[in-house]
Amino acid sequence: MDLGLAGKRALVTGSTAGIGAATVRELAAEGARVAVHGRNAERAEAIAADIRAAGGEAILALGDLSTRDGCNAVIAAVEAAFGGLDILVNNAGGSENPSRTWADVEWEDFLENFELNTGSAFRLIKHFLPGMKAQKWGRIIQFSSTGATMPAAHTEPSYNAVKASLITLTTSLSKTVARHGITVNCVTPGAVDTPVYRKFVTNLPPFQDKPIEEINRTLAKRWAIPAGHLGEPEDLAPAVAFLCSGQADWITGVNLRIDGGMSYFINT
């Protein structure tokens, strides 16, 4: 299916590893000109070099998006290379300490996670939106989390709440810009086998020194993922590319679950 992405200018934040890296590769494979973003130049260059070797076009946009200065640096790199954006994928985020619980979370952690997850998306949206409006075409994608929609008792409360805000931001913004040919959507990944995930689970006491395959099998069962396995970053990337494509012109304001059926409640 022709996604109509040839020549589109795309920034995928947090694209040096995991879901972001898979997404930026997928968009490049569909012909988009991509900006690889991360905080580490060496890792970003490795992804960009891979994309170029496969015949794609990739530049680097480096910076810490949890700060205004870092966002400005990323914006400057994208503007210098592309002069605007057609596709903004706000994937960067996470939590500095995913093992926080209500027992030890502080208000400062909420603020920090708000900056890291929502602040980064907000600043980039504010900058790139006018250009998308002027050209009457744009795609903006956020990443939420099943932690937002089905928070568990012992998962990071501030991360969960902040990720929920991205779903609301998506629907709200979608209504404002739909008549300008811009769609705004969100993706909610379930458990995906990424480097960040591995770092987290292999440090959990019961899993230390266990092979990752065994940990994944145990967790797929414990989390009752109907698919019977965790997701791979490559399970997310095609869906993001689809939402960015001309095939999804009439899809806006949605939050697409990609979780192997883990969300046990109906999807409205």
């Binding site: 937002a148 209504k175 304001g253 990609i258």
Partner: peptide
């Protein structure tokens, strides 16, 4: 890895958040 979902294709007509 997409299973059990209801994907809105409605031009943004549903005005409430999608979970």
């Amino acid at each position: 890895f997409i299973n059990g979902v209801t994907l809105r294709v409605d031009g943004g007509m549903c005005g409430f958040i999608n979970v």
